[in-house]
């Protein structure tokens, strides 16, 4: 089955954003808490955090997880009183 146009675009995007030194999914998990706090505080994304950002762009699995993580974080601090 040929790839759909959408899939070809995704592939081209994935290929274009490939860098030699990408972190893997565990590397992403190791830094994702810090990345989320940086993002939520509106601080600039620097050095180690760039690698996390790139991984999230290239890994659908971690990206979905990150969105869930942000929502869970917002729920964690909601108080019921």
């Amino acid at each position: 089955m040929p790839l759909s146009k959408q899939q070809v675009s995704s592939l081209v995007q994935l290929v274009a954003s490939t860098t030699p030194d990408e972190i893997d999914c565990d590397g992403c998990l190791d830094h994702v808490a810090e990345f989320a706090e940086t993002l939520l505080a509106g601080l600039p994304i620097e050095s180690a955090m760039v690698a996390v950002q790139n991984h999230l762009q290239n890994c659908h699995c971690c990206q979905m997880e990150f969105e869930t993580f942000l929502k869970a974080l917002s729920g964690m601090d909601e108080t019921s009183e």
Binding site: L29, D30, H31, V32, A33, E34, A36, E37, M64, E65, T68, F69, A72, L73, M76
Partner: peptide, 22 residues
């Protein structure tokens, strides 16, 4: 022992919980 204090502890803890859940 892998927690390096780069984020708040509960944030780090939640990242682990979310990975398990997803």
């Amino acid at each position: 022992d892998q927690f390096e204090g780069r984020s708040q502890f509960p944030t780090w803890a939640m990242s682990i919980a979310v990975r398990l859940a997803t």
